[in-house]
Simulated scan of single mutants.
Amino acid sequence: MKRIKLEVAYDGTAYCGWQIQPGQPTVEAELNRALTQLLGEDIAVIGASRTDSGVHALGNVAVFDTESRIPAEKICLALNQRLPEDIRVQTSVQVPGDFHPRRIESRKTYEYRILNRSIALPTQRLYACHIYYDMDLSKMQAAAGYLVGEHDFKSFCSVKTQALDTVRTIYRLTAGRDGDTITISVTGNGFLYNMVRIIAGTLIEVGRGAYPPEKVKDILQAYDRNYAGPTAPAQGLTLVRIEYP
């Protein structure tokens, strides 16, 4: 028996998130189906990040165990022939049998894309959040600074979260502009349910002048979801990479 780690990219538009849901299309279900077909074994992957419906990924991570003799590095090529075109495994490598993608310390990087122009672009509707009003990037950058470090992010997670511990560490949080596109990039040791989208929604509120950057300090200290900005739409969010020691 050997354990294989996959790096998975996908367009999340057609899926009800990563995690298996009865009767619904999910990325995890497609991987399990394709792997079971390829290897002739009943395969169930373990994913690192259970992304929400409509969220995309360039580098999510999953592992599975197999008795197959197919070389680990060749599994991704054979697997991609059995996956829908909106899911592609980028790499497949053998890892130690005790490697668990959610229990090992890691750094996750997400990006949230905002199309900031008066009229939306149809080609971007599934991959960015359209904001038509002017955005003050310098205020967004100032607000982002208050969130870097170790904090209790209870104000920045969904009330539906099942996490008992809401303390997380953000190593880097930036907002930059390239033409009409504003990209919020965040790297942390883990994220609560909807945390990145709520951070994005809060920075958008700051950018449009709804409240000053320093209010983010008060939001953090409120420990109450009602104080933060709205949850930004899912389509703007992409899981870029997960880094392990």
Rank of each mutant, 00 (worst) to 15 (best):
K5Q: 11
A9L: 03
A9T: 03
D11Y: 04
P22E: 14
P25C: 00
T26P: 13
A29W: 06
A29K: 12
A34R: 01
L35Q: 09
T36I: 04
Q37F: 08
Q37V: 12
L38Q: 04
L38I: 07
E41L: 04
V45H: 02
V45Q: 07
G47Q: 00
H56S: 07
A57D: 07
L58G: 07
V61S: 06
A62I: 03
F64C: 11
D65E: 09
S68A: 15
P71N: 12
E73F: 13
C76W: 14
L79F: 13
Q81M: 06
E85P: 07
E85G: 06
I87G: 02
V89G: 05
Q90A: 02
S92A: 06
Q94M: 14
V95Y: 02
P96A: 09
H100A: 02
R102G: 12
S106I: 05
R113H: 11
I114G: 07
L121Y: 10
R125I: 14
Y127M: 12
H130Q: 11
L137H: 03
L137Y: 01
S138N: 14
S138A: 14
M140V: 11
A142W: 01
A143W: 04
A144R: 09
A144Q: 13
G145L: 13
Y146I: 11
Y146H: 15
L147E: 12
V148A: 12
E150C: 05
D152N: 15
D152A: 10
K154N: 13
S155Y: 07
F156T: 08
F156D: 06
L164H: 08
V167C: 10
I170A: 08
I170K: 04
A175H: 05
G176F: 01
R177I: 15
G179T: 02
T187Q: 03
G190I: 01
N194W: 10
N194R: 09
M195L: 08
I198L: 03
I198H: 03
I199Y: 07
A200G: 03
T202F: 02
I204C: 09
V206I: 10
G207P: 05
R208K: 13
G209L: 02
P212T: 00
K217T: 12
K217E: 14
D218H: 02
L220A: 02
D224V: 08
R225A: 13
R225W: 12
V240I: 15
